[in-house]
Structures are given as C-alpha cells and as structure tokens.
Design a protein around this nucleic acid. Structure first.
Lengths: 126, 126
DNA sequence: GCAAATAACTTTACTATACAAAGTACACGT
DNA sequence: ACGTGTACTTTGTATAGTAAAGTTATTTGC
C-alpha cells in the first residue's frame, strides 16, 4: 500500500514544500493564468514582493523545474519572462488537490463538531 | 484603504504563518473535529509526527494562543490534552477562507487560460 | 527486586530557507 | 559626466522545521 496516510489521515504528505509558501503560491497562481508568461516586474507588482525575494523564489521554482525563465532584452533593458512548465502545471494541480482536501476536511470536521454529541464523532481515541 | 492587496492581488497576506505549515495544518484540522480535545499520542498518530516534532509544533500553537494545553495524569502516566481555543477556531476560519480563495483563484485562472485568446485575459501587463 | 523496555513527552542541535539589505549593471535625461 | 531609475543578483542573518538525544516514570520479564 501507499504511505503512512493509511494510519495518519492528517499527515498531508502531498503538500509540496516548494508550492506551500505564501510568496511562491502567489507567483504560481499568477503564472497559471498567463500561459504566455509574465515579466519580472509584473510578478513583483502582482505578488507584492521585493526584488530580492522575487528573484530568490523564482530561482527555487526554476531549480525545481516548475517554471521556465527566459532572459532577454526589451527596449534595451534586461527583461525576464517566467512561465510555468508542463511539470509545474501538473505538480501544482496535484498540490491544489491536496489543498482542497484540507479545506474540505476542515469544513466537514467543523460541521460535525457543531452537534457536540460524543457518540457521533468519527474517530475514537485508543 | 486596506493593505497592498489593492495593487497586489496575489500577495495572500492573510496566510497566517502559524497555520500555513504542513504539520500544524494537520494538528489543527485534527483538533477542529474534536471539540473535547485530543491527547498527545492521538495527535501523533493522526498526523504521523514524531514526538519531538509534535511537541515543538504544539508549543508554537500554544504560544500563539491558538490551542490550549492541559497537562495531567491518567492511568499513572502523564497525559497531555490539546484543544483549539476560541481564538484559534476563529483565526483558522480566516485562514481557511484565504486558502479557499487561493484554490478558487487558481481554478479560475486555469480555466481562463484554456481559451488562449490574448484579448480575454483579465490582467494586462504594462 | 533488578534490569530492560516502553510510554510520554522535552530539550538540544542542526540545517534549511525566507526575507531584507546591499550590490551590480546598464540606460536615459539634463 | 553625473545623478536617477530600472532590472535584477548576491550576500547575510535570523527564524524555524526536523531529527536526535535526553528525561522521568512505569510496567514487564527473569
């Protein structure tokens, strides 16, 4: 069988560290809506990041093979364009699926505990 | 006006660092379904964490005032019970709302980019 | 009744990394 | 030629997640 999630339903193994980070989450959700890619300065604005931070996070995403970085010149100035790779798109879809599970888990649990009947809780401590 | 999210729609300022962490996310989603609280060993199993990790993360959550820790003895052994505080429940609801927004943002963006018509993208680079 | 094992944690140490601050390079206006 | 602005990169630091070792007490095997 699979991993420990058999016994540990709240382990959330699938939450990829590379995506699971405020800044990078912003970058990737920005990119997913722009298949042609986005410029460094665009991302900076959209995600409210400083130059240094953005640079570093893009590097992490690039090293992981999740975004492709195209460096060139435009209007005689350096111009960096980033776009999601196919792998990035796929992996992010997986990540999102886990996120949705988290949200659903929480919603279900919160709902169940509205009716505080001790016999009705799904899981029983040993 | 509010914060930078005016100009930075993908900043995700609301993603509280204390919750936004694999292990703690597991702990809290476990706890939210058990209003009476859970024992240390139960959490350990449910979240697939080592003793040391769990101890540390509980401490963080406790220091932030998000979970209450009751230490006592049961069957002549130390027995720690953790439960969400009201603050914790409220803050986590806020966090979840942002998470949902992330998921929705991504879903919308992915859908929009299915039709790769450059005139239809919502945001236009400067 | 003593040693070894187990339970239930806590503390310490290491490692990774997010973020900020400073640095580099080039172009443009004046 | 000189400062100003754009577009990044590099370096440094402080936080924090994780693993390993330590602590205390309580059963269990011999």
């Amino acid at each position: 069988m699979a991993n420990r999630s058999e016994n540990a339903p709240f382990a959330y193994d699938g939450l990829d560290r590379v995506f699971h980070e405020k800044a990078r989450l912003g970058i990737v959700t920005s990119l997913i809506g722009h298949p042609k890619g986005l410029a460094f300065s665009d991302l900076k604005q959209l995600c409210g990041l400083t130059d240094g931070n953005l640079s570093r996070h893009i590097q992490v995403l690039q090293d992981a093979g999740l975004v492709a970085v195209h460096k060139g010149y435009e209007r005689n100035r350096p111009h960096t364009r980033c776009e999601l790779t196919d792998l990035g798109r796929k992996r992010f879809a997986d990540y999102l699926a886990v996120l949705e599970k988290v949200v659903k888990n929480a919603a279900d649990a919160a709902e169940r505990s509205e009716e505080p009947d001790p016999d009705k809780v799904g899981w029983k401590p040993a």
